[in-house]
């Protein structure tokens, strides 16, 4: 084994082993998705795994109504879209001074933010509900958006600050000497330089909020206001009576936006979407 000529086969064997193992794990990860794909295209689908007798889009056509699909989708877009927009704007504003200035309580603020970002939001949902009852914010988009934004801000500020720390300060120095205000510098110089970071934070936030079930489930009551996260649960919860082909199609439609966003991010930014903000522990 110590002969140099024998050193070559081992890495190759190692590579074969690694590739085979990875292929198996990849396959195992994809297995649970097979039913969804087959059932959504199978007009007679059940919970069983089976090849469709006839591949058709009937399921998608059947769920294409305002009450069942389009309204919950629009509600979800309003809630997740506005909340993530709010989070991105506010976290960019907050991250700028934290990244650029030395402030007396800056570090305290950052550690508080880090602590808050680690708290399980689930734990405070019931108190939030009773508090929102008193504030008359239950069953309103505004309440739902504000809470989603508030609970996502700590992590977003942390991510945003880490992205901002990576932008060299030289460009801003010129602008400051010309008398530009710090908000103007942020808008015209810093933010354009960190477009990948901004996109990563926005899309990451949107994906999390689009998939969030507990917050709208607790805070929204009116069926006309529910987003797809909750309507899918209600659909899924009516076992027995449910048409499984329709259910699978519904889940596919609900998942489509986040899958598309993920593909866009991983393609366009190739590596920027690595939670770089969060990873720097």
């Amino acid at each position: 084994m110590t002969l140099p000529s024998l050193a070559a086969p081992r890495p190759r064997l190692h590579a074969v082993f690694a590739n085979v193992t990875l292929a198996i794990i990849t396959l195992l990860f994809l297995l649970p998705l097979i039913w969804l794909v087959l059932a959504s295209l199978d007009p007679g689908a059940t919970l069983s795994l089976r090849a469709p007798e006839r591949i058709a889009l009937d399921n998608f056509v059947e769920i294409g109504t305002w009450e069942l699909t389009f309204r919950p989708m629009m509600n979800g877009l309003i809630i997740s879209g506005l909340a993530s927009l709010l989070v991105v704007v506010l976290s960019a504003l907050a991250a700028y001074p934290l990244s650029r200035y030395t402030m007396r309580y800056g570090d305290h603020f950052l550690y508080t933010v880090l602590f808050l970002s680690a708290l399980p939001v689930t734990a405070i949902m019931i108190p939030v509900y009773t508090m929102f009852v008193r504030l008359r914010l239950v069953d309103s988009f505004l309440g739902c958006i504000l809470f989603l934004a508030a609970s996502s801000l700590p992590f977003a500020i942390w991510m945003m600050k880490n992205f901002m720390d990576g932008i060299p300060i030289e460009f801003e120095e010129a602008a400051w000497l010309d008398g530009a205000s710090s908000l103007r510098t942020l808008r015209t110089i810093v933010l354009p330089l960190m477009t990948p970071g901004l996109a990563a934070v926005s899309i990451f936030q949107f994906i999390l909020m689009w998939g969030n079930f507990f917050v709208p489930f607790i805070l929204l009551l009116d069926p006309a206001k529910l987003p797809m996260a909750v309507t899918l649960y209600q659909f899924f919860g009516s076992f027995g009576v449910v048409n499984y082909g329709n259910l699978a199609a519904y889940a596919a439609v609900y998942s489509a936006p986040v899958i598309v966003l993920y593909l866009v991010v991983s393609r366009v930014f190739n590596g920027a979407f690595r939670l770089s903000g969060g990873a720097k522990g």
């Binding site: 794990i25 990860f29 649970p32 969804l36 899924f236 609900y254």
Partner: peptide, 27 residues
């Protein structure tokens, strides 16, 4: 494949595993 499982909404994940682990002819 691994990250796809992560971006999917949690209720969809629950549904997928319900079908996957289903007693009668589940995957």
């Amino acid at each position: 494949a691994v990250v796809l499982a992560w971006v999917l909404p949690e209720v969809v994940v629950a549904m997928l595993w319900y079908a996957f682990l289903n007693t009668r002819d589940g995957t």
